[in-house]
Simulated scan of single mutants.
Amino acid sequence: MDVEKAKAHVPDSEYFEYNSRDAIIYALGIGAHAKDDIHYIYESHENFTVFPTFVVAPGLAAAGLMSWPGIEFDLTRILHGEQYIEVYEPLPADAKLRSESRVVDILDKGSGALFLSNVTTYDDRSGKKLSMQQISTFQVGSGKFGGAKTSPHEKKVEDTPKRDPDAVMEEKTSVDQAALYRMGSGDLNPLHVDPNFAKMSGFKEPILHGLCSLGFATRHVIKAWADNDATRFKAMKVKETGKVVISNAWVQLSQASSKPTVDEKYASKM
């Protein structure tokens, strides 16, 4: 790994066009329901809203590392590490987006290398800045190259409160969730659908995208704490591990309910 060469590289802007159909497929991929979440999956609804974490789709397209100077990239050893999302404006129902990507650091974690990428996304038609994301990508087996273990550029998670949860929600994903999510998110890594590729990568079978779990979790928080109004979403950060799908995560809302509203079908059965 050549850290300074990777940080110095300034790629061309990445353009991403979508319409309400694409946003709806994404919403279905993170488990949105016709009964409760119709404003995310019906383009003619008076309050139709593009779910804010859909911005991961243009972010992923812009943050591609396969041919990035200074990085020795191997798709079979790639895992999603952490994700930070900050939204400044609601996403339009249809748009042409422009994203600018930079590798701000490469960390040496011993067992692998962690690539930190910042992606800033704009509405190309209006010029408005819509979102900033930080994507950390872990490549197994690429560590021990003598790099730093921490970075001042890294977005930190908030400390987890030392108390019992204020609310617990449960929802079972479909066996076809990954196949649906990859179509809505644009993350076409065969790890999530091809059994042979999954085995080559060290898994027994295709695995669900970490960002799909992120979408589910965000949807639950918005449903419980924001009256299912996704326009209140401001920012979130998640840290993933090998055992717990998402841990040390937080979501910031522009306005939150004083008490959570948890639908009975999502209530914990524990």
Rank of each mutant, 00 (worst) to 15 (best):
G81Y: 06
W250C: 12
K5F: 09
H192F: 00
G184Q: 07
D166K: 13
A32G: 07
I38T: 06
R102S: 05
A62M: 06
K129Y: 03
N189P: 08
G202H: 11
D263P: 03
I135F: 15
A178Y: 00
E158L: 14
K144N: 11
E43T: 08
I78T: 11
T160D: 05
G186W: 07
S67L: 15
F145P: 00
S258P: 05
P11W: 07
L114A: 10
L114D: 05
Y181Q: 02
T218I: 00
E86Y: 02
P161R: 13
D36I: 05
V221R: 07
I135Y: 08
T53R: 04
E86T: 06
P165E: 05
H9M: 07
K243G: 15
S13L: 11
V221N: 03
K269E: 11
P92M: 05
H9K: 06
V10A: 05
D166T: 11
Q255M: 01
T49G: 06
A62H: 02
Y42F: 12
V104L: 10
I41C: 07
T49A: 12
S136A: 07
M236E: 07
Y42S: 05
V168T: 15
K239T: 12
M169T: 13
Q133E: 14
Q133Y: 04
D108P: 04
S151I: 03
K172Q: 11
I38F: 09
G29Q: 03
V87M: 09
S101H: 03
V244H: 07
P165F: 04
S142R: 14
S258T: 15
Q177T: 11
L60M: 09
T53D: 13
F203N: 10
K96V: 13
H33Y: 06
R182G: 01
D123L: 03
G210N: 04
E4D: 15
E46H: 14
V193H: 02
D194E: 04
V168F: 09
T231H: 10
K265M: 12
Q134L: 06
R98S: 10
I30E: 01
D159W: 01
K239H: 14
F197E: 00
W250I: 08
S111Y: 08
S151Q: 06
G64S: 11
M169P: 04
F73I: 06
M236W: 02
G143Y: 09
V262M: 04
E100I: 12
K128D: 05
Y88A: 13
I30Q: 00
L211K: 00
D227W: 08
N118I: 14
D36S: 09
R182S: 02
G186Q: 06
A235L: 07
D12Q: 12
D2C: 01
A93W: 08
G141W: 11
A167F: 04
Y15W: 05
E14L: 14
